[in-house]
Amino acid sequence: MEKLMMKGSEAIAEAAVRAGCRLFFGYPITPQNEIPEYMSRRLFEVGGQFVQAESEVAASNMIYGAAAVGARVMTSSSSPGISLKQEGLSYCAGSELPVVVVNIMRGGPGLGGIQPSQSDYWQSTKPGHGDWHPLVLAPSTIQEAADLVMDAFDLADEYRNPVMILGYGLIGQMMEPVAFREYQPREFDKSWTTCGCKGRPPNIVNSLYLDPNILEEHNHAIFQKYERMKREEVRFETFRMDDARFCLAAYGTVARICKTAIAQLRDEGIKVGLIRPITLFPFPEAVFREARVRWILDIEMSMGQMIEDVRLAVRGRTPVHFYGRVGGVVPTPDEIVRKVREMYKEGVK
């Protein structure tokens, strides 16, 4: 496979096209503009359509429409824009529509900043209104981003549910070598789509259920899909956990920074490993629960969001500590080394 040096945003866009995505609806916001820019050139080359929507709200409803007629469709945005897209995404979840959405996070709250941040863990894994989750995939390299985008479209179709790719400036703006795998198209049932009712009774794509009993049933049906995701789709990476006495928990590029720190700490004789969730929903609970370590240090570019899921996973059996940088400040390997060294010396339990 030929390797190409690509920006993360462009690799994400190209992977989508190679996975059969022919429609993109988006709205400019830094730091993800390279995705709509790339799509605006690329999609017309392959007979697709690109619309620069009037707002994120509109874009999230355009993907709803395109998914309703069975198209592979994607949108992308960054944190404040994802807040606006929550409307359409909730309707997609309620109407069981397969869509892929890319969130290149930035700092908040409010307008926040544009530098790398993981402050959308909550609004990604535990999103807008209603009982629902997207399946959330968090790549740590550009290669993984490209691979996960291809998987995202299949997962969206498999579960008829939104799938989110969660990155930030480090993933979106960075360039690394990428080799696109040959995408193998799979067949999915599309008999539910609203493409004209020739030869059958009309189909309805809808999330309105005025009868409480029926809505309750619908909620249970959606959550059965999430239970299946928890059984079948959990992904994570472990790094030097075999003999680890201490464990770092981090996702995305932060996990790579942790690996650099771990190499140094191991040289000092501190046996520390890493668990990197790749699916943030469904969260890899078992691997955390089963880790036989003295403590877990959760490291995020947020005030501590994923840590709630780590704590729920270990059910109080393992102490979970936190180290975070926010506002767009990226933690360095050195500061992680210092933090772990400190905890080690103080005998933190």
Partner: peptide, 11 residues
């Protein structure tokens, strides 16, 4: 080799 290019971005 492995390689990674990271730009400064924004204003």
């Amino acid at each position: 080799k492995e390689a990674c290019w990271m730009p400064s971005y924004g204003p």
